[in-house]
Design a protein around this nucleic acid. Structure first.
Lengths: 140, 140
DNA sequence: TGCAACTAGTTTTATTTTGCAACTAGATTT
DNA sequence: AAATCTAGTTGCAAAATAAAACTAGTTGCA
């Protein structure tokens, strides 16, 4: 991992998008944060139907970027558990702002609308609570 | 524009990323919101050096999505002014959360760091003020 | 007035990313 | 023992982005 990544600029926006601005990263983070998914097979089953080669590639990049880490499942030799790092958990506010925007401008399904609205209605307190919860579940 | 866009899911995250999750949209929005750019040539000159065919294509998509609109420049028959709609201005909080994340996790240039930190330090009030300013500048 | 520089693109070709579907070797379940 | 599961891998196709050259018209300036 001696390869230094090349950047087109050092602007905050560019650096953020460079880290997680591909088509799938935030969707995988959502699967982990909102739906509690942690296995490769579970991510494959999301509604958006990511291809396995793309999932494999994204998970690797996300690990290299420091958003997630891998753990063996003690109950099954083949199963890998994917967990969020603190850096990954720090993406939660971005997911929330994305969701807020969608609630205002898109036709969102009712279940998600209620769930997201509940978190948003709780303000900063609610957001921090969710993040603390994620830390408890993911950081060992 | 009778073509109904197809969606892989109705999840808020997916709908948001479908609308602005490509490689360039938020960078162009940044150019408009943060750097006050409004002409094609100006966008071409950003540090990330977008290709003109990509810029042309993205601007069209952004207009179709309802983020921006075009206006003739009264002083020059060829010049087109690109302006943000309210829907586009509603992307500002997302840019701010992206920037916050970068300030924490990436090596951001000092000038941007100071500017972004100032806005973030002002909390909700500061954010709303920026958005009101954008509305005054862009909505006619 | 004529030419250079400018305007928002457009075109062509190349590269990268994503998509689709089938496959793999090993582990677990029936 | 065979079927099903695990996290991938592979090969090819489609879509998005990248790079560089080009275009027709407008403006500025000598």
């Amino acid at each position: 991992m001696g390869k230094e990544k090349e950047y087109r600029s050092d602007c905050p926006q560019y650096l953020a998008l460079d880290a997680f601005g591909d088509r799938w990263t935030l969707l995988i983070i959502r699967d982990m944060m909102i739906d509690g998914k942690k296995y490769f097979r579970e991510f494959l089953q999301s509604k958006e139907k990511i291809a396995s080669n793309i999932l494999s590639s994204r998970l690797q990049s996300m690990e290299e970027e420091g958003f997630i880490y891998k753990k063996r499942d003690p109950s099954h030799k083949q199963k890998i558990i994917y967990l969020l790092t603190e850096k990954g958990i720090d993406l939660f506010p971005i997911l929330m702002e994305n969701a807020r925007w969608s609630l205002k401008h898109k036709q969102v399904n009712d279940q998600d609308r209620i769930h997201i609205q509940t978190i948003l209605d709780g303000g900063m307190k609610s957001k921090q609570k969710m993040m603390e919860k994620l830390k408890k579940e993911h950081l060992f």
